[in-house]
């Protein structure tokens, strides 16, 4: 088996919480990402799902080194980014790029499409200055934009076109890994389909690895090879996308899958929903033991005793102590 291109070992991202007016004291810790281990293979699309506040975006930013990890390591092709110097991290960014959710916020309104896409080429000096324009034109064509629009500003583009610019910018340095944080959540369904097709074509063509974050399970199932489900900073289930979403094992994944409304009236009218009580707990004060136990219909006393580790169960990994009983 090939070596993973990106490896996360027990990554933790904790934020201290300070209180007090003149004298600040640390009163708590938000464990946004708490012990995540993952391996991403070359050319693989890994979906990362979970509800808001589960730490999926923090994990994405930690992989990108936009937020420093407080523990564990992020290893990109043998280079340990968490221990690396600023220069090393900067060099590694050539191989590791990010696409954000909101293309309205992630593009500088004062830069033309040309300037936005050329910026990484200029910063990293990967392209001789006289060839920048040609390279930008190639990139725009690659993502399905006409190079004629090179001198336009972001406000002259629609949401879907802006997301294409953001993708072209991320592809400019020919990265090996792209982390896409909810890249289609802000788009309409018909535009969403265009961007999803573009992303899967690009990963196939350029042999890119993609970490695809979304809250929409049907989108994740469509695009991903494997999927990781997060709850309160931890991965609770990890396995092949179709398997996990069609036959979820962890009670939280089951609830998540059962909560998605399907566009099929007959199914929708007869199905039994597993409606979870309450909201996800605060990561500032997570429940003891399995973080899901207060909302879990299968919880027992032993669920409160200790944090369940991710364990191999029939071709996937699940973190539930009662997995063989339910």
């Amino acid at each position: 088996m090939a070596d993973p291109i990106l490896q996360l070992n027990d990554v933790r991202t904790h934020f201290p919480v300070h209180e007090g007016f003149l004298v600040k004291r640390q009163t708590g810790t938000v464990k946004a990402v708490d012990g995540v281990s993952l391996a991403l293979m070359p050319g693989e699309v890994l979906g990362l799902v979970g509800e808001s506040g589960c730490g999926k975006s923090t994990l994405a930013r930690t992989i990108m080194q936009l937020i420093p990890a407080t523990g564990g390591s992020v290893i990109l092709e043998g280079r340990n980014l968490t221990a690396g110097s600023t220069e090393e991290v900067r060099a590694a960014r050539r191989d590791l790029q990010m696409v954000f959710q909101d293309p309205f916020a992630s593009l500088n309104p004062r830069l033309t499409a040309f300037a936005a896409i050329a910026e990484p080429l200029v910063v990293h000096k990967t392209c001789p200055p006289d060839q920048v324009a040609q390279r930008v034109a190639e990139l725009m064509t690659l993502v399905g934009l006409s190079p004629r629009y090179m001198q336009r500003y972001p406000h002259e583009f629609s949401g879907g076109q802006r997301q294409r610019i953001a993708i072209a910018r991320a592809l400019a340095l020919q990265p090996k890994v792209i982390v896409a944080d909810e890249p289609v959540s802000a788009l309409d369904v018909s535009i969403q389909a265009q961007i999803l097709n573009l992303l899967s074509q690009l990963t196939r063509q350029m042999h890119l690895s993609l970490v695809f974050i979304a809250h929409d399970l049907s989108v994740v199932k469509h695009i991903s090879d494997r999927v990781a489900v997060m709850y309160l900073g931890k991965i609770v289930e990890l396995g092949p996308a179709v398997e996990v979403i069609e036959r979820p094992r962890h009670p939280y994944t089951r609830a998540l899958v059962s909560a998605i409304p399907t566009p099929n009236p007959d199914v929708e009218r007869t199905r039994q929903r597993m409606v979870l009580p309450g909201d996800p707990p605060s990561p500032l004060n997570p429940p003891a033991g399995c973080a899901f136990h207060p909302r879990c219909p299968y919880a027992q006393d032993k669920c409160k005793a200790g944090v369940p580790p991710l364990e191999q169960v029939g071709g996937r990994e699940v973190a539930c102590v009662r997995i063989n009983e339910i």
Partner: peptide, 23 residues
């Protein structure tokens, strides 16, 4: 019809999604 064909939940996995061209 096009709208229904472009949502992942109503598509088989694997192939490309149907897309409505243009804006």
């Amino acid at each position: 019809r096009a709208l229904q064909r472009s949502i992942p939940a109503m598509q088989p996995k694997g192939g490309d999604l149907y897309t409505i061209p243009g804006l």
